[in-house]
Amino acid sequence: MTKIAVKIPGLTMKNPLMPASGTFGFGDTPASTKFDLNQMGAMVMKTATVSSRTGNPQPQIKVLEDGVLNSVGLTNPGVDSVVADKILPFKAKYPDLPIVASVGGSSVADYVEVAGKLANSGAVSALEINVSCPNVANGGMHFGTDPEVVENLTSKVKAASGQVPIYVKLTPNVTDIAVIAKAAENGGADGVSLINTILGLEIDLKTCRPVLGNNYGGLSGQSVQPVALRMVNQVYQAVKLPIIGMGGIATAEDVAKFMLAGASAVAVGTAHFKDSLAIPHIAAELPRVLDEMGVSDINDLVGQLKFN
């Protein structure tokens, strides 16, 4: 029988699939009610911040032919409410489903506070550190683009999270993503997840204005997959950390590609715009794809890409 279960720090998963952060909100979006979420390997929550946030100006989302451009912003009720009103009730409903909570902030102190409160909830299996947030305390630069900042932030969040493993979510909007991944590893990360969205722009010719209220937005979906695969493979070669890969995954074949490139697990996001049951559909197809590849254990795929 083909084995599709995977195990990475903090996460013992029946399959390698989880929703990308924000895709299912806090388990309270219409998409998250369409199937039994226990069919997923893990649940990834929307990013929490110290205080409540309302998000960016409308419109926040533009669906393109081969992807989605979004500038939703980190809309959330604040970490205290996220724990009490979102995560704890979700854990009560799905006690056996591993939960990955997402940590955001505008300063190192923010990240430390949010990570500590999420970890201390007792309900999360791992934390994903969203270092693509604008670093307000340092002139608006994104945390995830400076190796020294990433290493420092990772070490402080790691100290605050106690026994809960942390995965640093890497932005692709950098010159060399391997350098950033090494910084996360040096800071004590238990793993990395990548890629976050690629900064993009779409223009409406009738108005001569950007289609998004915040002008620029993050591009995700099928169009970014080759970039994501390249970056996952570069990071796999650079660090010894497990990788959660994402970027345009919509089929079981896509999952196999990401694992060959070096991912140990994957996240699905934009595919849900076309198929709200994307994760259970992909999970059901995985054994067939592995059988066709002559693979009996999905973990045997990890990093087995053969270069020309």
Rank of each mutant, 00 (worst) to 15 (best):
G188V: 03
V149S: 02
D275E: 13
S21A: 15
A263Y: 05
A178I: 05
N215C: 12
L205E: 02
V232P: 12
S121V: 05
L305R: 10
A238P: 01
T23A: 07
N173F: 04
V211G: 03
C133K: 04
D36A: 14
R288T: 15
N15A: 00
Q163M: 12
Y167M: 15
L194P: 02
G105E: 00
L74S: 05
N215V: 14
R209Y: 03
F90S: 13
M231H: 03
E292L: 08
N130Q: 10
F90N: 14
S106H: 10
I99R: 04
S71N: 06
E65N: 12
V239D: 03
K93G: 05
K206L: 05
K3V: 10
G213I: 12
Q237G: 07
V227H: 10
G55D: 05
Q39Y: 01
I180D: 00
S220L: 08
S71Q: 00
S106F: 13
M259T: 12
E148P: 00
G303K: 14
A181G: 09
E185F: 09
H272F: 14
S32C: 06
D110V: 13
K274H: 12
N15G: 03
L205P: 11
L97V: 02
A183N: 04
L286I: 12
C208H: 09
L170M: 10
L11A: 10
K14Q: 15
A137P: 04
Y111I: 10
V124A: 10
P98D: 08
G247N: 08
Q58L: 08
I298D: 01
A31W: 15
V266R: 04
D275M: 03
A160Y: 05
N215Q: 11
T29A: 04
G22I: 12
F26D: 11
